[in-house]
Design a protein around this nucleic acid. Sequence first.
DNA 1: CCCGAGCCCCTTTTT
DNA 2: GGGGCTCGGG
Length: 751
Amino acid sequence: MNQPQDILAGLNTRQKEAVVTTEGPLLIMAGAGSGKTRVLTHRIAYLIHEKQVNPWNILAITFTNKAASEMKTRVSDLVTEGGTDVWVSTFHSMCVRILRREIDQIGYSRSFTIAAGSEQKTLMKRVLKTLNLDPKKFSVNAMLGEISNAKNQLINDRDYMRNAVTYWQKTVAKCYVEYQSELRKAETLDFDDLIMLTVRLFEENDELLAYYQRKFQYIHVDEYQDTNHAQYRLVELLGQRFKNVCVVGDADQSIYGWRGADMSNILDFEKDYPEAKSIFLEQNYRSTKNILQAANTVIENNPNRKEKKLWTDNQPGDKITVYFAGDEYAETEYVAEQIRSLMTTDSTLNYDDFAILYRTNAMSRVMEETLRKRRIPFQIIGGTGYYERKEILDLMAYLTLIVNPADDLSFRRVVNEPKRGIGAATIDKLTDIALMNDVSLYEAALQAQNTNLSARAANNLESFAHMIQDFRKMTEFVTITDLVESILDKTGYLDVLKKDNTLESDARIENLEEFYSLTENFDRVADEDENSLLEFLTDLALIAPTDDIEEESTEVTLMTLHSAKGLEYPYVFIIGVEDTIFPLIRQDSDEEDLEEERRLAYVGITRAERKLFLTNASSRMLYGRRLYNRTSPFIRELDDEVVEIERPTDAASYKTGNYNNPFKKRAISGTPVPGAASKSTRRKKHHPVGVGAEKEDWTVGDKVKHGKWGIGTIIQIKGEDKDMQLDIAFPSEGIKPLLASFAPITKIEKE
DNA sequence: CCCGAGCCCCTTTTT
DNA sequence: GGGGCTCGGG
């Protein structure tokens, strides 16, 4: 079986070439569905089998943990032994693994914990407060975003401070320094620290770097188009010695720019590695000709793009169905009905042959409702899900504090949860005490008796700290499942919920019980010798939404377009394909953002194997507001010949249907045909109400001045009062849909 | 110190 | 539409 010819069997010429080109830098430009995972796994197998490379000298970096474990399995299937010794992991997991061994060299504890999402926010909120900053001017999100960007650029807090020029930068710098020092004190790293500190570790320690360079003789990076600068640098450092760096990716699928991903990493690979070979995989094995043509014509609208054309030997297949619904309910009904009727027609189909994709998580709710009503089983991937629930976060904070008592973030979260008479005033005092003695809150609490705290408060704190101490001792000899059970019991957490006896508390109890399936799974495979609690928490922190997709389930899968990257389904629905929603346009969106949105559309379209549906609604409720959106330009960009349009047959819903024919060509790209606005929204009296620009009396044709984009013309008015939306054409920016109550605009008086 | 009511905010995508 | 936060009363 395991002969080299088997390893190359079934690969096309280009794929074979990519597999056997093992020495030196290699760029594999792999279009969607061109079999790149196959190439990567076969290449690794080939290295082991044919080139006698030790599995442990091979590194492969994937985008998600799931992709990593799949790759491991597939490599193991191809080689006789050693498949599991290959390092296959995500950047973040790899860095954790390295840091757990080495981070003490740069002064951190090796049992550091990881702060994700909501924890970072909580911390940043406190930072803003301590620095007395107006949260209206400096939002937690903006601040964290800026710091994340800096870290992705390998700029640490001190460098940032040194280089800060503007008031905004100087303020960010202060926050960055404070944020970092809090994390540091808590022996906690955020996601970006994992990469940045690993790079720092290597840059400051030649011997250590040399060790890992010798270890990783063959390096593979998948989804290279979505690497950021820090990750780029990490690969560069590791690959310097052997230069056997093989990167795989597709610039057209670069969709993580907002997260610091830098497409030029892949575009400039040949410059960075002058001796690099490039191989292009352009034959698609996944989709029908029509689907590919749709994908190709859409992506061709991106001006800044390297020419590339996917082709396939597959059948032309069905046309793309574009459906115009009246509102979001009609839209989801249509999707549900299609699934039902397709399954009736073709009995070989299963629910898991269908995926429903959307631009924002918020859009899953109506879809969810409809599917539930129609009794179609489904799973939702990602979103504000399980791991963001209060009770789960509380429980995880307990576990984190137990394993890392220095973690003040977790301490704060659970010290009075459930209520045990330790209020804000007490915590403030304790914080001062801890600060003065240079100890953690936990340590300060252990000795609360010897302080000026009231006897009652001190007692409460001490018994809390002792309880944590006891849990800490337990970890040495009980499973995580037992530990969790003990926490929920001894802290009284479960009791409080039980006594509450409301629908909500029942749900929380259920969620906590679900947590046991995680711990039990982990306990089953846990290594006796390792600090398994720490490992358990690390795994949870690094989990990606798609890691949770149930392979065996027979359910329809709902997820964002981002989450769908790398996946494929016979039938794909993309819902909410409307202007300003997909592409998602925000007030500061620019041309580059639009191109990334288009790449996202490309990713979405190419997920479909057999049949693609694009749906939209002429009116939809979003974030408590009813929006009236035009059809997405992406629909307009499709070739007429690969599309068939469907509209509601039911007269009632047709009434609210989208009157705008998306294929009616526009005078100038982005400028609507005169009269295209529906009658109901065009000429309405807008009475001055509210506080923003909606209190003005606007008419189509009015000239306005925008704070950022200068002078523009109103071309359409939708909704009224606080829901008023103005479409304004700016000479340099094109058309921007603005929510009047937020828009920084003023009317220009006629001269 | 706790809890509830009302107010306010926001509202993209995720390792 | 919904969740987090503040403020005021007990």
